[in-house]
Simulated assay, not measured.
Amino acid sequence: MMRIWSIVLIIFLLSCDSDPTNRNPFLQEIGFQFDINLNLPLYSPLTNVGNAVYIGTEGVGIRGVFVINVGFDQFRAFEANCPNHAPDSCSTMEMEGQTAICPCNDFEYSLFTGQQLNRPDDGNRYFDMLEYRASFNGTTVIISN
């Protein structure tokens, strides 16, 4: 009997997560769904690999969403609010090619991966871009959270 309880205790201890949260404290995750019709001229750049668009429609993300075609009918979607800055008047990032730049602090992020490209080496914790689900169905990209 003691052996069974020991096994149960070991399994319980091994299933505990040592990192309590990976959540970004600056960004509130909101629920939404938005369909992108690639036949519309506004979104036609997404038919080419490496092209990205900004969608600033109210209710889509916090400050909008960047969507990029990463190839092989795969798309990625990221929150347009700087992940290392609370939402305010300067926190909406600007897109320059395949890079998003935060005007508050000049941090740069890859739209292919969402990773911060110029992370300071100052010992502070920095966050990559918040990614949303993106699925492709014929001529429609569906982004959601």
Score class of each variant (00 low, 15 high):
Ala86Val: 12
Gly61Gln: 05
Asp128Thr: 00
Glu108Phe: 06
Ser110Leu: 07
Asp88Arg: 01
Leu42Val: 02
Asp88Leu: 04
Glu94Gly: 02
Asn22Ser: 11
Gly64Lys: 03
Ser18His: 15
Ile142Met: 12
Asp19Gly: 12
Asn22Gln: 10
Cys102Val: 06
Phe12Ile: 09
Leu13Asp: 07
Ile10Ala: 15
Ser144Asp: 15
Phe26Val: 03
Glu108Tyr: 09
Thr99Glu: 09
Ser18Pro: 05
Gly97Glu: 04
Val60Pro: 00
Ser135Val: 12
Gly138Thr: 12
Ile62Gly: 04
Cys16Asn: 08
Pro45Ser: 02
Leu27Pro: 03
Tyr43Ser: 03
Tyr126Asp: 13
Ala77Pro: 07
Gly31Lys: 15
Cys104Phe: 07
Asp73Thr: 04
Ser18Gly: 15
Phe136Val: 14
Phe127Leu: 10
Arg133Asp: 10
Asp17Trp: 03
Asn124Ser: 14
Val67Asp: 04
Phe127Thr: 00
Tyr126Ala: 14
Glu58Met: 11
Gln115Phe: 08
Arg119Thr: 11
Thr113Lys: 07
Thr47Ala: 12
Arg133Gly: 08
Ile68Met: 05
Phe107Ile: 00
Val8Ser: 14
Glu108Lys: 15
Cys102Asp: 04
Tyr43Phe: 10
Glu131Tyr: 05
Val49His: 13
Asp122Ile: 01
Pro20Val: 09
Ile143Asp: 00
Pro25Trp: 07
Gly59Ala: 04
Thr113Val: 07
Met1Val: 07
Leu9Glu: 06
Glu131Val: 09
Gly56Gln: 02
Asn39Ile: 06
Asp35Leu: 08
Leu40Trp: 08
Val8Lys: 14
Arg76Cys: 04
Gln74Thr: 12
Asn124Asp: 11
Leu111His: 00
Ala100Lys: 00
Gln74Met: 11
Cys16Ala: 12
Ala134Cys: 14
Ala80Met: 02
Ser15Ala: 08
Phe26Arg: 07
Val49Trp: 03
Glu108Cys: 08
Ala100Met: 04
Asn105Tyr: 14
His85Arg: 13
Thr140Gly: 02
Asn22Met: 14
Gln116Glu: 10
Ser135Ile: 12
Leu40Lys: 15
Arg125His: 13
Leu117Val: 01
Gly61His: 06
Gln116Gly: 02
Glu94Thr: 05
Ser91Pro: 10
Gln98Glu: 13
Leu130Met: 10
Val8Trp: 12
Met129Gly: 01
Ile143Lys: 01
Val49Cys: 08
Val70Tyr: 01
Leu111Ala: 02
Ala100Gln: 03
Phe107Asp: 02
Phe112Val: 04
Arg63Ser: 06
Gly123Pro: 07
Ile55Asp: 00
Asn118Ser: 13
Pro41Asp: 03
Arg76Asp: 01
Gly138Asp: 12
Ser6Lys: 15
Asn22Gly: 11
Asp106Ile: 12
Phe66Asp: 00
Asn51Lys: 12
Arg119Phe: 10
Leu130Ser: 03
Leu13Val: 10
Tyr54Phe: 10
Met93His: 04
Arg23Met: 13
Val49Thr: 14
His85Asn: 12
Gln74Lys: 14
